Simulated scan of single mutants.
Amino acid sequence: MKGKVVPENLKILVIDDDPFVRAMLGEILESSGYAVATASDGTAGLRRYSDDPEIGMIISDMNMPEMNGLAFVKALRQKDTGMPVIILTVNTEIELALETIRSGANDYLLKDENIEDTILISVQKVLTMYRLEQQNIRLIEDLARKNKELERLSFSDGLTGIPNRRYFDEGGKQEWGRALREQIPLSLIMIDIDDFKSYNDACGHQMGDRCLQQVAHTLQRSLRRFGDFIARYGGEEFAAVLPNTPLNGALAIAETMRSDVMALNLSHPTSAISDRITISIGVSSAVPARNSDLSGLIQQADQALYQAKQTGRNQVAAAGPA
């Protein structure tokens, strides 16, 4: 569990079974601008800590009835790994104080005639270290978020927002490896927008970009199973990877893609086959064999795509075993 956030107007919980010590420490701390809460032993201190969200630091005596300082720190650290804790001790308890530091306390002080000065120095030191630690944690978390976003962007196509060729290469390789281990089918769908060059030339690059975006999002929506993904393969070509999908299942998805793109009703004034934007699709499927890789499946899908183009476009063609 993360620690409470230490407020600027710090409230310190003082735990000591001696009412004189509690009063003395309270007066020292309050005179320096700190708010103070008190408890008479470790058990009461844990309750007070749990009930008061404003507590930002704890000063605890070592030798107390019911629960001593060491037991208190161990119990506290099970709930809160970050709360700053200072332990007060006498000379005869130094070894126990060091054990408390090893258990999660931030500092220990001797209860002697210098306590009025040393307690304030220790509070400032521990508080400064705590805030530096929290700042470092925030910096690390911020760096992790930025790195994650950079990684996401490196796998994302800048124009369409769907995964890019790099994502396809790495994701496809991983799915091929998994299909090989589990001996399950892996299917690949290669998609090409028909007569896109003539569309781009006739309608302009802005319309061409808009067409690519709409087609990409439509193809992505055609995939409904967890694990399936579509990527922009290059130019006006897209590729979909379908884990644990046999050829007949992939063909059904490919036909859905083809009809969904036609349903966009994007006008194509220079198409030789339709007055709308259409796509040609090649599908391949295989249960991976040892000493094989994804390139063979890509080659089969490319050949099927070529066949779909050669036999009239706006259709789905298959290659590879069912």
Rank of each mutant, 00 (worst) to 15 (best):
I101E: 09
D293R: 10
Q310K: 11
I184T: 15
Y233Q: 01
S32E: 15
W176M: 01
D107K: 13
A97R: 08
R258W: 02
A39L: 09
Y199T: 10
G158A: 00
H217P: 00
M24K: 11
C211E: 05
G235C: 03
G249P: 08
N114S: 09
R165A: 00
D195I: 02
S222G: 01
A105E: 01
S274Q: 03
L127T: 08
L247R: 12
L251G: 06
L247W: 07
A319E: 08
G249M: 05
P321T: 11
T38F: 12
M57Q: 02
I119K: 08
V241W: 00
V261C: 03
M62W: 13
V215S: 00
A263N: 09
E54R: 14
A239S: 14
R221F: 02
I121R: 14
A231H: 01
F168I: 01
D52N: 11
A286W: 14
I277S: 02
I230H: 01
D142C: 08
R232E: 00
N291A: 06
T270K: 12
I115V: 11
S50H: 12
P84D: 05
L96F: 06
D52A: 01
F196E: 01
S31M: 04
L219N: 01
R48G: 10
M262C: 13
N200M: 05
E27V: 14
A263I: 04
N147S: 14
R276C: 14
Q310F: 06
E237K: 05
P84N: 04
L110Q: 08
T118L: 07
P185T: 05
L297I: 10
I59A: 15
E30Q: 15
R258D: 10
Y34A: 13
D41Y: 09
S295M: 05
Q174D: 08
G204Y: 10
L96C: 06
A105C: 07
V261D: 02
F226M: 11
K125L: 12
D51W: 10
R166T: 02
S295L: 05
N147Q: 14
K4E: 10
D260R: 04
A322G: 09
V36N: 14
E236W: 11
A71W: 06
G249R: 04
F72E: 05
S154C: 00
K11C: 15
E30T: 15
N9W: 08
V73G: 08
V126W: 09
S103C: 04
A272Y: 09
A179H: 03
I12A: 15
Q183D: 11
A231E: 01
P19T: 02
M257W: 02
T245G: 04
E237S: 06
M190T: 09
K111R: 11
G161Y: 00
D16P: 15
P65N: 00
T256N: 11
M57C: 10
D228E: 10
L186T: 00
F229Q: 01
M207I: 03
R138A: 12
Q220V: 00
E236A: 14
G227Q: 01
E99Y: 05
H205Q: 07
K148G: 12
V316F: 03
N63M: 15
V6I: 12
I115A: 10
